[in-house]
């Protein structure tokens, strides 16, 4: 089977799996579990966005949470100001994508080196975190939406049935949308990476100079993949805003750090691994949070250390290698 066909098959399988999960899980899970599952799916989408940017674009972004938070806040502000929350979707996707494009333009066209890129992305996240934390006063509002400082925007309206603002979607329906978004984004990533554009992006990760000497504009390709990653992180933020609520923690260092750990544990350079890594580690930290004598962050750190030592390539590549070895 050719690589192209394999990618197409994997994309179709991902969509089928997403369809099955979207149909089956709402039937067997209770409301609280459905909301929790939606959060997991949103986090998996956030991990997928970094998996694309870092694993394939070679851009280690320490601030993926910035686009996640921007997506959430953009949705909340737009949803509170617009009569139909459906119209908030393009704003929730557009704002983080444009922010990623602007930041990427400065970094890639300014020829900032990899180390400084990490510092800049981290700093931007922290600036946003501190800024949004300081918006507690009543003067900090955009139209009808108060930014709320460290309290965030608790009264974020959920998505409604398109064209029918009076009918808000139920948590089960939002879960279905979240799963469809994750499956769809995975399939799109697969197909993009098999396209000529995707191959150039991977080639740039392998050797920037060679790609440039072949006539490919390295800056443009990096900018494009970074903006796509920003859009996906924004989508994750919008889904998160629909099942929890937006608050400055979305921009926090904890989220930025966690998403890097999810991708590392799942496997840098893979798409499915980070999705699985995000879900497993979310479940693990949630469980650890129920233990009074254990700090969940400590558990997460321990998992990272063990994973780096035991499975340095990450879950997906290690499992795939094991499977290949056992298959005659």
């Amino acid at each position: 089977m050719t690589e192209d066909r394999r990618a197409l098959l994997q994309a179709v399988l991902a969509l089928l799996a997403a369809g099955f999960a979207a149909w089956w899980l709402p039937q067997v899970l209770e409301l609280f579990a459905i909301i929790n599952a939606t959060v997991y799916v949103a986090m998996a989408l956030l991990a997928l966005s970094l998996a694309l940017v870092w694993g394939f674009g070679g851009i280690l972004c320490f601030g993926q949470a910035a686009f996640f938070g921007l997506g959430g806040y953009a949705y909340a502000v737009a949803a509170l100001n617009l009569p139909d929350t459906t119209y908030a979707i393009p704003i929730a996707l557009g704002v983080p994508m444009l922010a990623a494009a602007a930041l990427g333009y400065v970094m890639f066209y300014g020829k900032v080196s990899d180390v400084y890129m990490g510092v800049i992305t981290l700093t931007v996240t922290l600036i946003l975190f501190n800024f949004i934390n300081s918006t507690a006063g009543d003067e900090w509002r955009i139209g009808a939406a108060p930014l709320g400082g460290f309290n965030g925007i608790p009264a974020t309206p959920p998505l409604n049935v398109p064209g029918d603002p009076g009918t808000a979607l139920a948590p089960e329906q939002i879960f279905v949308i979240a799963v469809a978004c994750l499956g769809g984004c995975y399939a799109v990533c697969k197909l993009v990476l098999r396209s000529h554009f995707g191959r150039v992006v991977v080639a740039i990760r392998e050797n920037e100079l060679r790609a440039a000497l072949l006539g490919y504009d390295v800056r443009f390709h990096k900018l494009a993949i970074f903006a796509i990653g920003g859009l996906m992180a924004g989508l994750a933020g919008m889904l998160f805003a629909n099942c929890v609520f937006v608050s400055p923690t979305m921009f926090s260092l904890a989220y930025s750090g966690q998403v890097i750990i999810w991708v590392m544990v799942g496997g840098v350079g893979t798409l499915l691994g980070p999705i699985i890594g995000a879900m497993l580690l979310q479940a693990l930290t949630a469980w650890a949070g129920t233990l009074p004598e254990v700090n969940p962050s400590l558990i997460l750190g321990l998992v990272l250390v063990v994973a780096v030592l035991a499975i340095p390539r990450g879950l997906q590549p290690t499992l795939a290698a094991l499977f290949r070895r056992r298959t005659p």
Partner: peptide, 13 residues
């Protein structure tokens, strides 16, 4: 060169 790619993939690019 593109070390992670095959020779044919690299030259094709």
């Amino acid at each position: 060169l593109f070390d992670g790619l095959t020779a044919l993939e690299g030259v094709t690019l």
